[in-house]
Design a protein around this nucleic acid. Structure first.
Length: 264
DNA sequence: ATGACTGGCCCTGCCAGA
C-alpha cells in the first residue's frame, strides 16, 4: 500500500496536477492539505472518476484537509478534527481506516499543522497546543496496537540537516527549540519518521518557497512527514519524495511524499 | 544587493503562508 501526503496550496489551482499524479503514481491513499475551499467546491467528481473515494474537511479560503483512497479499498471510521478541537473551526485534521481484501487495515490521518508565525502572536501557542492535542490523540490510537500513519504538513523542521540554511530559520516557528521538542515528544510516543528511516541523508526537502529563487537554488526544508506506529513501521518498504512536481508550471510550493507499506 | 511569490477574497490592496 502506497500512502502519499501532499500540501497542494489550493486544490482548485492544483486539480490538474493532482489528477496527473493519481494517473501516473497510482497511490492507494492520498492525504491532502491546504485545500483552501469549502467541501462543495472540492473537485470530487473528477477525483472519483479517477477511481478514488473522497472524504474532505474544508473551510472557506484557508486550511482544509482530505483523504483519497483508491477503489476497491474501503475508507471507514472517519474522524474530523482532533479531540479537544470541537469549538475550533480550523479545518486541519481528518482520519480514517483504510482496508481491503488482502490488506491489513491501516489508520491514516491527514494533518495540516499550524504554521505558528509570528511567534509573538497567539498563533504560536495555538501551534504548540495543536501538537500537544495531536500527541495525546496519537497515544490513544496507539493503544489499539494496529498500523497507524500520521501524515501531513507538520510545519516543523525536525533537525538542522532538514534545512538548506538552518540559520535563516533559527527564530522561526518552524524551527524554534519548543516546536522541535513538541515534535520529538510526538515521536517519543513510539512513532517512526518514515522518510528519515528510509533516507537518513541531510538535504532531503519537501518545500521550497516561491520567493527568492528558492527552488532553482535548492533552498528547501523538510516539513512534510509520515509518522508510523510500530505496526506500520514493521511493514515499511520504502519512502520517497516526488520532487519533480516542483518543476512543473504553476506548482504547489510543497511536493508529495510517499511511503510504501507491505500489505500485511 | 538581504529584494525576489502565490492564492483567496469578491475587486483591491491586504492577509496568510513558511
Amino acid at each position: 500500500m502506497r500512502i502519499t501526503t501532499w500540501n497542494v496550496n489550493s486544490i482548485k489551482q492544483r486539480a490538474g496536477h493532482l489528477l496527473a499524479f493519481l494517473a501516473e503514481a497510482k497511490p492507494d491513499v492520498v492525504c491532502l492539505q491546504e485545500l483552501k475551499c469549502q467541501d462543495e467546491a472540492f473537485p470530487r467528481a473528477e477525483v472519483e472518476e479517477a477511481g478514488y473515494r473522497v472524504e474532505t474537511l474544508g473551510q472557506k479560503a484557508y486550511n482544509g484537509v482530505a483523504l483519497l483512497v483508491r477503489a476497491p479499498l474501503a475508507l471507514a471510521e472517519i474522524r474530523r478534527g482532533l479531540p479537544g478541537d470541537e469549538a475550533d473551526i480550523q479545518a486541519r485534521y481528518i482520519e480514517g481506516v483504510v482496508s481491503g481484501a488482502d490488506v491489513a487495515p491501516v489508520r491514516v490521518a491527514s494533518i495540516y499543522l499550524p504554521n505558528g508565525n509570528p511567534v509573538a502572536s497567539e498563533k504560536y501557542p495555538y501551534k504548540l497546543g495543536f501538537l500537544e492535542r495531536l500527541r495525546r490523540h496519537a497515544r490513544t490510537l496507539m493503544r489499539a496496537e494496529t498500523a497507524l500513519v500520521l501524515a501531513g504538513d507538520y510545519n516543523v523542521i525536525p533537525e538542522a540537516e532538514d534545512a538548506a540554511d538552518p540559520e535563516a530559520w533559527r527564530a522561526d516557528a518552524l524551527f524554534l527549540p519548543q516546536s522541535r521538542a513538541a515534535f520529538r515528544a510526538l515521536l517519543a510516543e513510539g512513532l517512526t519518521d518514515g522518510l528519515r528511516a528510509c533516507d537518513p541523508r541531510a538535504g532531503v526537502y519537501t518545500f521550497w518557497d516561491y520567493q527568492a529563487g528558492c527552488w532553482p537554488r535548492n533552498q528547501g526544508i523538510r516539513i512534510d512527514h509520515l509518522l508510523l506506529s510500530p505496526q506500520a513501521a514493521d511493514r515499511l518498504v520504502s519512502a520517497s519524495v516526488q520532487k519533480h512536481l516542483r518543476g512543473l508550471e504553476k506548482p504547489s510550493d510543497h511536493v508529495p511524499v510517499t511511503v510504501e507499506l507491505r500489505d500485511a
